[in-house]
Design a binder for these strands. Structure first.
Lengths: 231, 231
DNA sequence: TAGATTGTTAATCGATTAACAATC
DNA sequence: TAGATTGTTAATCGATTAACAATC
């Protein structure tokens, strides 16, 4: 059914599909190292132990056109994915929070290869301000909005304690940030236009803990055979 | 085809709902501090800026019974959620990888309040072995399976580089671990009985990056044209 | 050609949202 | 009581899975 309103033409991209693309991307890179020159969705599914139909749909969603009976030129597909995700276009970011997690994030050199560069770090703790972490000097948190404004930074990472997260998010929004990647275990609220990605460990821990206890036979209700599904 | 055996009629717990429970849980704790003694789902929804119907469904899913016109006694609901998620029952864990992320995880004291206690740390790097991190002495990775076996550890955390993740997961499974929380940016495969929770930052980064570029007006589908031409 | 693989459409499944009944 | 809130059922929506057509 094509309601070909040329305007509403944009396909809706499922979040879950987007989140699977890095899995394919990495596997493709490994294949490239091995000298492989072409790849089919079936190859990907086999190699990763995933459902072939799902892989097909995910790849197709990116809009790449392949050849029946052939698949995709490997390097072309890699480049396609990089372009699709914007991983080949640099986006600057700021980081709030220079604790252990913040420092770890600052040390992830691979972020840059994935289109994200942390330009500056901010903290409220006087003892940390002025210190250098992975080559970046920690600045006072209050400087953040102006820095964001001056440099047109798009992305803000929050790695502060939970109780500071909301106010830091507000600072970022004030400065004109467009997207927030929140690592603090806190529910923050932002204007609708702001893209918010939460990386709250306790969300995962809840799921993991519940499933683990269920599997062990601990009784929320009746324990039952759990059919494991995705990975 | 689901057999509606009235007795073994276990409700299916949606993953997404599980992952939202910590949000409610935290908000309830804040309310408790403020001296509130009862709460309705509408209160939660309002306070958190979430959809009331969804909150209702999520809370109902946990099996708690409330009173119409009243809601739930606040403390009772908090305790109920803790019990439902298993956060009031200690589960031991091991950590593989004593790098910056591993160290940060080790330092999260709140994990213990959420039912998880990291009992031991392992690394393959001779320079790290023997060091103490947050009071835990780093042990050789090879000791991991035996430790897990001896102590009946349920949960394994992987915070190694990507290329070590699969072999570490295998070690954990060998030792008899029941669930793996994988922080390495790697797709790992485990037997079906093993619960696997991935915390892959690049999954999120893909989603975030794509959405950000789309919002900025960057053209994923326009570039498609230039690529499509070359074959 | 034959058949593997892409491309596309349909069916199924599950989660969200909406509607409404029960009840304190 | 009245009406706010829980409890439950139905409708909608979206994603996954399956089926099949096109094509190189």
């Amino acid at each position: 059914m094509q309601s070909d309103d040329a305007k509403t033409r944009r396909r809706e991209i499922p979040e879950a599909s987007l989140r699977r693309l890095p899995i394919y991307y990495r596997f493709l890179q490994k294949m490239a190292v091995d000298g492989v020159v072409r790849v089919s969705c079936a190859d990907l599914a086999r190699g990763l132990g995933l459902d072939p139909t799902q892989v097909r749909k995910d790849i197709e969603m990116t809009g790449i056109v392949g050849k029946p009976r052939f698949g995709y030129p490997l390097v072309h597909l890699i480049g396609w994915l990089e372009n699709f995700l914007g991983w080949n276009r640099a986006k600057s970011a700021v980081l709030a929070g220079a604790g252990s997690l913040g420092s770890a994030l600052l040390g992830y050199e691979k972020f840059r290869k994935h289109g994200m560069e942390i330009m500056a770090v901010f903290d409220i703790d006087g003892a940390k301000i002025g210190q250098r972490i992975h080559g970046k000097e920690v600045q006072p948190l209050g400087f953040l909005p102006d820095f964001v404004r001056r440099t047109h930074t798009l992305l803000g990472l929050i790695a502060t304690p939970a109780d500071a997260a909301q106010s830091v998010a507000d600072l970022m929004v004030t400065g004109g940030i467009r997207a927030i990647w929140n690592f603090a275990p806190a529910h923050i609220r932002v204007p609708e236009r702001i893209i918010l990605q939460n990386e709250d460990l306790y969300h995962s821990l809840a799921s993991l803990s519940f499933k683990l206890e269920r599997q062990l036979g601990a009784p929320p209700f009746e324990s039952e055979i759990s059919y494991a599904k995705d990975h």
